[in-house]
Design a protein around this nucleic acid. Sequence first.
DNA 1: TAACTGTATTAACACATATAATACACTTAA
DNA 2: TTAAGTGTATTATATGTGTTAATACAGTTA
Lengths: 129, 129
Amino acid sequence: MIQLNYKDPRPIYEQVMDSLRRLVVSGVMKPDEKLPSVRELATSLTINPNTIQRAYRELETEGYIYTVSGRGSFVSPKDYVKDIYKESLLETFGKTVSELFALGENPETLTKQMQTLYGKETISHDSDQ
Amino acid sequence: MIQLNYKDPRPIYEQVMDSLRRLVVSGVMKPDEKLPSVRELATSLTINPNTIQRAYRELETEGYIYTVSGRGSFVSPKDYVKDIYKESLLETFGKTVSELFALGENPETLTKQMQTLYGKETISHDSDQ
DNA sequence: TAACTGTATTAACACATATAATACACTTAA
DNA sequence: TTAAGTGTATTATATGTGTTAATACAGTTA
């Protein structure tokens, strides 16, 4: 469910956050579904519980999960989670596009590039891969 | 010319790299133009020469600048510099757009967003701001 | 009550960042 | 040739972050 990459320069707790964020946003994990307990996930990834605790704490701060004392951590309501994630992606999108324009790129080229990627996205529904 | 932000969690040498990369790519610094010496830039930013040295070393590895022993560091040829920077931006662009599509965003919305940003970019030429 | 939750604390270690103080080889101009 | 300016390398030190480790505590649930 979660893959750690020790060649990745990013800290482990960030990699865990990324994985969980994606699982939550993509809908693989449903709203109000219980996440594995801190100790459980730490054991299965062979890392320290404190590291998982930190990932959970920061994911809660970002709004992707919520915690009930003594019961566990759970996935936040779907709409909210998608919204905050999309917002962060759109911010990156804006910054990147602005820089590309500043370097002389024009909207037409980027639109074409986008349509190619959109093709791949939709075609994949009919593919058996 | 270069602004350091100590609230920024990124290391100083990366902030210096970012600033110089932008100056080089945007054309503010011309090809074969001499960069300030390691000691000179360190003094003007009130940081350690070793930190600047690291920024220069890594910028050379990335191809943005080149060094002549005993003479100094210089801006790489323009086309090459723009190419490698654009390539990295386009990679970010592709990843971001793919994720947005996966979340149900469609090309039309993003294209509109892009055109808004392109407007701002071109209008600024006529503005007196 | 026992076993599970999240949370907090303290200590120890590794690593990256940054500073500091030198030293060396090369280039350039006086 | 010499002096001053280049980049580069080395060693030591301090600091902060990431991670592990060992506990401890309060709330929940069966």
